[in-house]
Design a protein around this nucleic acid. Structure first.
Lengths: 224, 224
DNA sequence: ACCTGAACACCGTTCAAGT
DNA sequence: ACCTGAACACCGTTCAAGT
């Protein structure tokens, strides 16, 4: 935030505060997101923030809502399966782009307007697809559990396999397997060796699991 | 931690520190888990903790591993489906009993011994059930994504419907629905009304979704 | 209306000093 | 070996004061 004309600076708004809070968390993690640090980034003193948001909790609420605003709503035309697939894929990408978001969901209890709006679009898509209210409840719980949980695990993967050369991956694999108790943990050893091979990427598991979930939902669409 | 004999107190260990850290987070949340607060609970000064753990991060790592130690490993005899079902149910209960745990998973990168051991038992169960390594990878990613995500959502539900009388629930329902933009969010309004009825509990959705996942895995067991 | 300096009650962690 | 007091560089937030 460099300011060209310090005497006539653009007035601070709630939207600017939230946008920079998201950017700061993206770049430096949620631990670096302090009122003082955010203020510094905005070229302002920490106490000025309290004129635009009630407190830090309100910033976290606003950040989660801003994240939901980025998620593609399901298309209203076309088949429900590809519409829901696209929105789940979009949700996952958003949660990986903002790795702090899924951890924040746990503590936020009052959903914002963008969050409510998004939920409404997804539920509407499921209802139009033929799910009963109860069925839409089952489907939504299953779908979002899967996407949230997958993003949680994906963010916890310690390294990015696509960003490494095959040689680096092989070196990492032997390093990890070296002090690995193969006889005590045979299945883990097997899986670790498998997952460290050049062709494997945890991210690819997403589509596999999502297909299983969508197939299951399709089978229950009429019976639920 | 009341001390009967202050002159001959039981020496502090890493295990005691972790046990009390888990208890403190359970009772007061992760925000209340400070080195000073934990020390106070142990009747000690904050700096003494650094003799038993490297730093606060090591405590968080140890807490996550302690949580995994509580999860029931799948049975080795009997069919894989009920074994995996029981372990997923156990994992969910543990994550609800320790609501801070699922939020911590995101930031922990190096799994502890109990965590590795548990993963090994689950993978072994899947391999014995006939899944290939690739298939076990698909299955495990899907299963844990579902359970983690479900626990995440369950912990975020703002109220416990089972702890309320039908009258309280009805009052809450009308209060929420009163300032709800029905025309803007018709599907959300419909679902909210449905979910606030006396018979509904979000927790019940767990078994429904788990069945869909297990059915899907069973269908792919031979083909993956 | 919008911003800020000083202050309060907290943090995690280091380090030298105690027993 | 185990514990601690003082100190450092941080937190979120309040409040009275500035423009």
């Amino acid at each position: 935030m460099t300011e060209q004309d310090p005497t006539r600076r653009v007035p601070l708004t709630r939207e600017t505060v939230l946008r920079e809070a998201v950017a700061l968390a993206d770049e430096s993690g949620t631990a670096a997101l302090s009122m003082r640090g955010l203020a510094r980034r905005l070229g302002i003193e920490a106490m000025s923030l309290y004129h635009h948001v009630a407190n830090k909790d309100a910033i976290l609420d606003g950040m989660v809502d801003a994240v939901f605003a980025e998620v593609e709503a399901p298309a209203i035309d076309g088949d429900w399966r590809s519409a829901i697939r696209a929105r789940c894929s979009s949700l996952r990408h958003v949660l990986v782009r903002h790795p702090w978001a899924v951890g924040l969901l746990e503590s936020r209890t009052s959903p914002g307007p963008e969050t409510l709006r998004h939920h409404d679009r997804v539920l509407g898509c499921l209802r139009r697809a033929g799910f009963t209210i109860a069925g839409a409840g089952h489907a939504y719980a299953l779908l979002d559990s899967y996407v949230y949980g997958f993003a949680l695990q994906e963010n916890a993967v310690p390294f990015d396999p696509s960003g490494q050369t095959p040689e680096e991956l092989a070196a990492l694999a032997t390093a990890i397997m070296a002090d690995f108790p193969r006889d005590e943990l045979p299945s883990m050893a097997e899986m670790t060796a498998y997952a460290l091979r050049p062709g494997y990427a945890f991210a690819d598991e997403f589509e596999v699991g999502l297909d299983v979930v969508l197939d299951g939902l399709d089978a229950h669409r009429a019976t639920w």
